[in-house]
């Protein structure tokens, strides 16, 4: 078996996933867009317009809430989409229908089949980020201040964040039964969203020290803070080195767990 065959086989799996994605593109986009769209509409358009502002507290003076939530909502869009992209179909494919079988029987190491899932999920996460960004930039009634301080930093954060999210999706998809998928969103996805420094910068959690420390186990914190450093550098944010380092560590750890889970589920 030459490496060329392995790469061609994996490319075949990517093409298959893209075919399925194209078929489900519209519902997928609706799912991706609905949450951030309603959030920015209510909190950054309706509230300021009717005179019920939501503040940012110390550190974000003058920049407004609409600016604070831009990086967070982009991060949530990416994470939510990447997790859904791999976890939802995978629970089915590994479940009663065993649809994964044909890819398990492809002449490729099982670990690579699992990694392909992460990569395709990451690509969908990036697309979701690109779709969410204009929404959260143009809808708010108050001005949004975004400028990219460093393109390499932005690209690195986006890549790592989407890979970490894809890996998290693989972990969830291989450890949850199809009947529990709704529960998984309630128990995992919703809490990491609300406690992911999406709607407030991490630095401001200093007012609640136990929470500030607790949320550090949440991968979304580093994605939001990383994007904050890249997109809204004038707002308080974690040092880019810290969020990048944590993202690398989490991508590796979640990737390892997810791949291991995949092999366990496919090899009896």
């Amino acid at each position: 078996m030459t490496d060329g065959t392995t790469l061609r086989a994996l490319w075949g799996m990517v093409l298959r996933d893209l075919t399925v994605l194209r078929r489900n593109f519209l519902p997928l986009m609706v799912r991706t867009v609905m949450n951030p769209l309603l959030f920015v509409f209510v909190f950054t358009y309706v509230f300021p317009t009717i005179g019920t502002g939501v503040g940012v507290g110390r550190g974000g003076e003058g920049l407004g809430y609409a600016t604070v939530v831009v990086p967070g909502l982009v991060a949530v869009g990416m994470v939510f989409t990447a997790i859904s992209a791999v976890a939802l179909p995978l629970t089915m494919e590994l479940g009663a229908t065993r649809e994964i079988e044909d890819r398990v029987l492809a002449p490729v190491a099982l670990e690579l089949v699992a990694l392909e899932k992460i990569v395709v999920a990451a690509v969908q996460g990036i697309v979701a980020g690109l779709v969410v960004f204009p929404l959260v930039y143009f809808i708010p009634a108050t001005p949004v201040h975004v400028h990219v301080a460093s393109w390499p930093l932005l690209i690195l954060v986006v890549l790592l964040a989407s890979l970490a999210a894809g890996a998290l999706g693989l972990v969830l998809g291989t450890s949850v039964r199809p009947q529990q998928i709704g529960l998984m969103f309630a128990v995992v996805v919703v809490p990491i969203t609300f406690l992911g420094c999406v709607y407030y910068p991490w630095a401001l959690l200093a007012a609640i020290p136990w929470l500030q420390h607790l949320v550090l186990i949440n991968p979304l914190v580093y994605m939001s803070e990383g994007l904050r450093a890249a997109l809204t550098p004038d707002l308080p944010h974690m040092p880019p080195g810290a969020s990048l380092g944590a993202l690398v560590a989490q991508t590796v750890a979640l990737g390892w767990l997810g791949v291991r889970g995949f092999v366990r589920r496919t090899l009896t």
């Binding site: 065959t5 392995t6 086989a9 490319w11 075949g12 799996m13 298959r16 044909d102 492809a106 490729v108």
Partner: peptide, 11 residues
């Protein structure tokens, strides 16, 4: 697609 992608999975 089931047949086509199967062939692709085999390189």
């Amino acid at each position: 697609e089931n047949l086509y992608y199967h062939c692709r999975y085999h390189g």
